[in-house]
């Protein structure tokens, strides 16, 4: 019983964090059709936010603003100098962002070195939850993600900005004719997508190793999520996260971690082959 509950919580954790890590890519790739190979690097830079905050001598509470500000500036510069030339050029965008990912990794390595950074957990220890000891930090993050995704879903359904984004994605020409400044809106969407990626890195930082190469860990799994779920909707992101995160955790527990990894690889190949639009696709 306890085992099942722990497995359940772990699965929920994997799905929720994967969903959040993939959200940034879902925004940039799913909405703007920029095949962002540098997604993992934005996650990585976000994970460095605690390191930057400590080096600046700021309070740990400043980690979130530091993360938003540093990623925001980097993403804005990337959009102005590079990305804006690649809307509607999906394959070229892959190459351009691949180059960008190398550049960002090198910059981080130059600034902070290659060695592991030590990020202290803000909420160490475990608490008794539903009768089992579970890490407090994870529970708090899970609660935060629950609230975040609820608000996001409502916002995405109802706000005027979300409607304008959907309009731009669906029909950029008509969007401009209807008075939507698509150049500025896509720039904002790109920057926000990158900031979300960065925040997911910040969220994971106390739990993972922090070094310049961690982005690669996340890029592929996030693409798997979108391949499985489909592009351009929160529903697709949800289905993809549940599929990839759930399958990997459950198969990993029942058989072996290698088995779990192979299964998601096979599932993704299967989908790319037979259903390249993913499970949830409006078109």
């Amino acid at each position: 019983m306890e085992d099942a509950l722990l497995l359940g919580l772990n699965t929920v954790w994997q799905i929720a964090t994967l969903g959040f890590v993939a959200l940034g890519l879902a925004i940039v790739f799913g909405l703007l059709r920029i095949m962002n190979m540098a997604h993992g690097e934005f996650v990585m830079i976000g994970a460095y936010a605690p390191v930057i905050t400590t080096q600046l001598g700021l309070s740990p509470w400043m980690q979130i603003p530091v993360c938003i500000l540093s990623i925001g500036v980097i993403a804005f510069l990337c959009e102005r100098l590079l990305i804006r030339h690649f809307y509607d050029r999906i394959f070229d965008s892959l190459l351009a962002t691949w180059g960008l990912s190398l550049l960002l990794r090198e910059l981080v390595e130059l600034t902070f070195g290659r060695s592991f950074q030590s990020v202290i957990s803000p909420l160490p220890g475990t608490v008794l939850f539903l009768g089992i000891n579970y890490p407090l930090y994870r529970l708090v993050v899970l609660a935060g993600l629950l609230i975040f995704f609820t608000v996001l879903t409502i916002w995405y359904r109802q706000s005027l900005t979300a409607t304008r984004i959907k309009a731009m994605v669906a029909n950029p020409v008509l969007a401009q004719a209807a008075g939507i400044k698509t150049a500025r809106l896509s720039a904002s969407v790109f920057v926000v997508g990158c900031i979300v990626s960065g925040l997911s890195g910040l969220m994971l930082a106390p739990l993972i190793r922090v070094e310049p190469f961690i982005g690669l860990d996340y890029l592929l799994r996030c693409f798997f999520v979108l391949v499985l779920g489909g592009l351009g909707s929160l529903e697709g992101l949800g289905i993809g996260s549940v599929g990839i995160g759930g399958v990997q955790t459950i198969v990993g527990t029942i058989s072996s971690q290698t088995g779990g990894y192979l299964t998601i690889l096979l599932v993704s190949i299967f989908f790319l082959w037979l259903r390249p639009r993913g499970i949830y696709s409006k078109n």
Binding site: L160, R164, A167, A170, N171, V173, L174, A177, I180
Partner: peptide, 28 residues
Amino acid sequence: RERGLGYAPQERSVFDPLTVADNLSLTG
């Protein structure tokens, strides 16, 4: 459009994935 020129194109004249209400509310 900012200068006050509206446009209803011949093809792809509406936002398919939006509701009728949202198509209209876009204009503010």
